[in-house]
Design a protein around this nucleic acid. Structure first.
Lengths: 333, 333
DNA sequence: CTGTTAGCGCCTTCAA
DNA sequence: TTGAAGGCGCTAACAG
């Protein structure tokens, strides 16, 4: 037989009070006489009573769990965000349902729907782009949403990011300042606004400021992976580039290693600046100069923003921009 | 006002059938005449009805969500496991509530309790050790549990691992075979059975087979981090060791880099074999020879095992051991 | 193949 | 400060 689950009703009977009273002490409602509270608490302890959160969720319409849609937890960038999210969630007594989407539109929609079916109180979305369909679901649902490390061109939902455009501009300028005339721009899909709009524009602005003509041939659309970086070497060298700004660390280290392994000296003959300042940049030899992003904080602040939204608090600004930096390492002169 | 949530009752009314019938089509019960099924489906579509999973959970006593307790998602090793877990969970229509514990006993207990309060159908636990308290909760609860990449000395719950002892023995033997007389053993806390029992025993066995006397001075208890690896260099060199087997990749690369940076040639003057074959081992220069563990699979198989447990299927063997390997890279001769 | 009827365990007015 | 009663939205026998 199933172990008899003990309910609020059992506690009420044993303590000789009503369910309502038990409910009150369980939920910390102050309107209970200390004496009865104590009595109830004792019975709860004796019976080892555990409130059923599902029943509570049904009755109260709050589940204290939020959905987190992430492209891939095993990617260091997103994993850092996720850690920040969970820590703040825990702090505010929420749990997170984590779901990997691989950045795939269909999966995102599916996952979002099951999350909403499970009545999550809020959703944090990470992804390289937002399809119309996903945005449609967001706006038709009453559930608050925050984008973490992801751009929303329309700015309809909350979001937390750094200024990718400025950061990329700074990185490009730094490379130009050290004498590079041809700086390659390497990113993931340019269809993603974070690359095709924010970062690419920052890159172009730097060129313009330095009177350098933009060339399509120096733009490389790739994959956020170490392998993709390894594979990029020849194309990059053939383009005549003597430096590169890249949107991903694994990608950058891949490029760096294949360059080094084939005899190209970094930074003497080729310089690299990457974007995420993950552990990879520090481990590589030479280590990689990088834009620094407060990844953990982006996650943490996103979750904090979401708690406010769920709480229907007034929000000054739904689109939060966090500061970035640039840390110089061995891959630049 | 809140957007009026539409329920199974609304659909029943509009389709002129009973709630039971609607429930049947929603749940794919075959006992419904195709015509009525079609009719109901149309109404569902027209009303944009979404079943409420919380209510379903309360009524059916199944939430189709499992709890995953993880020390730290931003650690590459655990993140890989987590990805395997989520993929298989999705495959079987489950979602995962992910909770970071930092390997802290208190947090583990807390998290486990809220997970159980939320009526998860099962739990996957990852952690370096299992406290008595946690094991107590496991056994007193009816909820199935599987340990992923974690040892249970008592073997009371399901688990999926590799044979850490044999793997470490092989690695140590390889180092001895290439001429090293003094091989350092570097791991996390020796209080964790995976280190203090499995791995250390494998290391000792290798020594014994080669008539080498075990020395406490060659055992280094450290932290699973890059920094800890960097900090270990002097102590390791002072011990007279000419090689090391290590239990963690970040740790290993830290040691490797601080060795290289201070002029010690790897592998000529010092050899290293690490344990997890993460991307770090491939990115490092020289790259690091490693035991290969099917991390993703450990996660995936754990979740698969859990589905069987939740389904009350007969299990041949609750403790699954997956194969490991050894991949030679630049850190060994 | 379909409908009726009880709950699942808890919260939340509304009275007392 | 406490209790009674009515749901929350859905599933699960059990009839028919």
């Amino acid at each position: 037989m199933e172990k008899q689950t003990i309910t609020i009703y059992d506690v009420a009977r044993e303590a000789a009070v009503s369910m309502a009273t038990v409910s009150r002490v369980v939920n910390g409602n102050p309107n209970v006489k200390p004496a009865t509270r104590k009595k109830v608490l004792e019975v709860i302890d004796r019976l080892d009573y555990r409130p059923n959160a599902v029943a509570r969720g049904l009755a109260s319409k709050r589940t204290t769990t939020v959905g987190v849609i992430i492209p891939d937890v095993s990617n260091a960038y997103f994993a850092s965000l996720a850690r920040g999210i969970d820590d703040v969630a825990t702090m505010y007594k929420y749990n997170i349902i984590l779901a990997n989407s691989d950045g795939d539109d269909k999966k995102e929609i599916n996952v979002l729907n099951t999350l909403l079916a499970k009545q999550v109180d809020g959703v944090i979305f990470m992804g390289h782009h937002l399809t119309e369909e996903v945005r449609g679901e967001f706006s038709r649902s009453k559930t608050p949403v925050v984008l973490a490390g992801s751009i929303d061109p329309d700015n309809q939902v909350g979001s937390v990011n750094i200024d990718y455009r400025e950061a990329m501009k700074d990185a490009t300028n730094a490379l130009i300042a050290s004498g590079n005339k041809k700086v390659a721009f390497i990113s993931g899909s340019l269809l993603d606004p974070i690359n095709g709009v924010s970062r690419l524009n920052g890159y172009k602005e730097a060129l313009t400021e330095n009177n350098i003509t933009f060339t399509e041939g120096l733009v490389f659309e790739s994959d956020y992976s170490y392998k993709a970086g390894l594979a990029l070497k020849d194309r990059v060298l053939n383009s005549g580039a003597t430096a590169a700004v890249a949107a991903d660390d694994e990608l950058s280290v891949g490029l760096l290693n294949s360059l080094t392994d084939s005899g190209v000296k970094v930074p003497d003959n080729f310089e690299i600046i990457t974007s995420n300042n993950s552990l990879y940049t520090d481990m590589a030899r030479p280590s990689v100069t990088s834009i620094t992003q407060p990844l953990y904080d982006i996650g943490a602040v996103s979750m904090r923003l979401l708690t406010k939204l769920m709480n229907k608090e007034d929000i000054e600004e739904k689109s939060i921009i966090l500061p970035y930096g640039l840390v110089k390492r061995g891959s630049t002169k």
